[in-house]
Design a binder for these strands. Structure first.
Lengths: 333, 333
DNA sequence: GTGAAAGCGCTAACAC
DNA sequence: GTGTTAGCGCTTTCAC
């Protein structure tokens, strides 16, 4: 197998070992162009023996660009992104495209995002998948001009950036209907400011909109899951019977606080991706991550293959309501 | 900002726009070598205006290798790996090194892993972080000869591969002591075969070892979390009072099955990283992911900086027992 | 302080 | 079928 200085082995060394030219060795290794089967075998064997590892930089430079597509991902510690990441990977394998990932942790101003994008572009990726909410259309636009770009998991304003997102409007309706049907009259919606988390902001808006007619108290959260929980509980003390959260992580924080204070109220969340949702009895909406991921990769693959685009620029996918024990009829007071 | 064909802009274009040579433009942009401050400014401005994005392939080819370190990660859908991923990212940022990630989903024979390693090596990464259990020492060895390699989260047999792992032996002891102290006499240990999940195999071994003296029933699980759950419940029916799992995901599966069947037994898990551990009342061990990640990156950074190695080749970190409601005294029968 | 030229490792016409 | 040649875009001595 690979011997000591295998990384120093160039294709030239392989060629020489077999007694052919570099071009022939290339053909043998890439399996393209006319070449004698026997030669090909000899070259392959030699490459194997020498532990030849092609230098991708050189390969891609010479070949002019790479077929790889870049993925910009947000913090994977969040189960939501971890799941999305995984689905994107699966989809990529299925579509036969290579994925190269760059992640950014929290990044309030979107600077690291832009930097990460440049890094990806520097690698001359063939396409870009943007799976992070923190960067907005205006920051994306200039790059979209260079390479096809698909945003996943968040809607997009620009017509030049494609998007496969979630139908949060509809999700909000599902949740709202349930809350309303159970008889809640005064509820608190825990949402984020657009800068904090665009996704949660959107969800809270959708939810509040769908709850029109009820007494809806809005509470803004910060980046930390526990932000705003205190304010929400105060609303509960003041008579609200349900705390509606824009993510399951927030919902957990609320449940924790409720338990600690010995208080009780209905709660709902959003995402439905945590391993124990069922056991915890969370009421939430399961995001259609698989579909969105699959669609995003398929679209990008189509774009790269120069297929005429047959689907709308922006699409959104519907998940499903997960009824749980956390949402019940309001308790009589 | 970047205009239309910015990806077509080469350093040569920037140089020409300013009326200098390529060499000067390079110096200006990289900020190395002697150059007139005024020229540097003009070049920088021109690059900005033209939206020049340096071609990393060319850069790294010419410069001979990259400072980037490669990370091979297992499926991020698993909260455990997602968390580890995130911690590694954070550590990398702090250490000032760039990370490039390749993930592999499930991969029974370790083939995709090896392929992923080759891909990373093809990019001539300066170092390698291996955060997946599925590939064993003999597969790693040949690559370790080429570039410094640190395995994280799993112990390593080879002396040529560094490792920052978890002290599962100790973790097993903690758990076992608790189980024993509560008075369980007959328990079932749900573990995996080494090929299925080396990590879980190790944990089950540690646990079983620490439980010496009790009546320990071993049940093997498969790749799916529900594999082996039926067998475990059968043991419970036959008199076992606790089901000890090698991961929290398994523990959830057991809890689910227990609830469905209306049966009851104590359970324990391993990992402690799921968002709702506390609310679920899981008994588990919280892995020291942060420490291991930090240590792995720091070690690699040190290796790359040619610092003399001051710590043992293989280290392991201790997490902490998380007592939960799922582990209680055995119920009288 | 700046430019000319060599070359990183590989691929892809185009000859033979 | 196989070898020759000309780059891919950038960095880096080495002169000037």
């Amino acid at each position: 197998m690979a011997d000591q200085r295998a990384l120093g082995v160039r294709i030239e060394d392989v060629a020489r070992a077999v007694g052919v030219s570099r071009a022939t060795a290339t053909r043998a290794l890439r399996g393209q162009g006319r070449i004698a089967p026997a030669t090909r075998e000899r070259v392959r064997r030699a490459a194997e023996e020498l532990g030849y590892v092609p230098n991708l930089m050189a390969t891609e430079l010479a070949a002019g660009g790479t077929g790889v597509i870049g993925l910009m991902l947000r913090d994977a510690a969040n189960p939501v992104y971890g799941q999305l990441f995984s689905c994107l990977e699966v989809a990529a394998v299925r579509a036969g495209v290579e994925l190269i990932t760059v992640t950014i942790g929290s990044d309030p101003r979107g600077e690291r995002q832009v930097q990460a994008l440049r890094r990806l572009l520097g690698m001359r990726v063939a396409g870009l998948l943007v799976a992070t909410g923190g960067v907005d259309s205006t920051q994306l636009e200039p790059f979209a001009a260079e390479v096809p770009m698909v945003r996943v998991g968040r809607p997009e304003a620009s017509a030049r950036v494609f998007a496969e997102s979630y139908d949060e409007e509809w999700h909000g309706h599902q949740l709202a209907e349930r809350v309303r049907a159970l008889g809640h009259r005064r509820v608190v919606v825990l949402g984020a400011a657009p800068e904090t988390s665009y996704g949660e902001h959107l969800r809270a808006e959708a939810l509040a909109g769908a709850l029109a007619g009820l007494d809806v108290r809005r509470v803004a959260t910060g980046p930390d899951p526990t932000d705003g929980v205190g304010a929400a509980l105060a609303e509960v003390d003041a008579g609200a019977t349900a705390v509606l959260c824009a993510s399951d992580v927030r919902q957990l924080a609320v449940l924790r606080a409720l338990a600690t204070r010995g208080a009780s109220a209905s709660t709902t969340g959003w995402d439905g991706l945590m391993p124990g949702v069922d056991l915890l009895g969370l009421t939430t909406v399961r995001m259609p991550v698989e579909e969105a991921a699959e669609a995003a990769v398929a679209r990008l693959a189509g774009l790269l293959a120069d297929e005429p685009l047959s689907v709308p620029t922006h699409r959104s996918w519907r998940g499903e309501l997960v009824p749980g024990r956390t949402l019940t009829e309001p308790e009589p007071r």
